[in-house]
Amino acid sequence: MLTKKIVKLIEDNASELAKEIQGKLLQHPSTHSYQNIDERMLYDWIYDVCSRFSYWLDEDKEKGEVQKHYRNLGKERFSQNFMLPEVISALYITKRQLWEFIAAGREVESALNLNQIVETSVLLVRFFDHAVLHVTEGYEDMFRENYGYVASLENREQLAQAIAAKRKRQEGTYEESKLPTLCFTKGMIRLG
């Protein structure tokens, strides 16, 4: 696989990258609440992503472990009074730092090197898309548990009703117009 070299580079520099990302999260205005959690815990969380990058990028883990891990993280951050946009922002800041590290190694003349970078980016983006999705699901679980909030369209019956109502509206829109039809009678045009 082309990406091996880059992934290894990230894992080898995990400690340095984790410190950089931690610094960004502590300073960024959109991740304010991260100042309230234990710095060591924050560092360990980031270090875990960077040092086991190949483990996390493994496609087989997407459905199971990534889902479980990030859903739980969503629940945990909710309990720590973090707002969901903050948690999402933290994940994006982490992704961006990793991407900048990867893209910094680009050699303009080398198609092989650039191919490796593009291929790694696909894995990186896919992983963080899943992480954001599952963190969101974890939050939704907590909305349900703590506030009894469930989005109405999550209810199958309400969804079916809303879809039926939409179809009815759309059918109305496509109804044939009641404009008079044109009739041709012996070369003359008259309205039917």
Binding site: P29, H32, S33, F82, M83, P85, E86
Partner: peptide, 14 residues
């Protein structure tokens, strides 16, 4: 939903 924290209104400033 009425859920907005301290940093909720921050510009993302990428």
């Amino acid at each position: 939903l009425g859920l907005q924290g301290e940093s909720g209104s921050e510009t993302w400033n990428a």
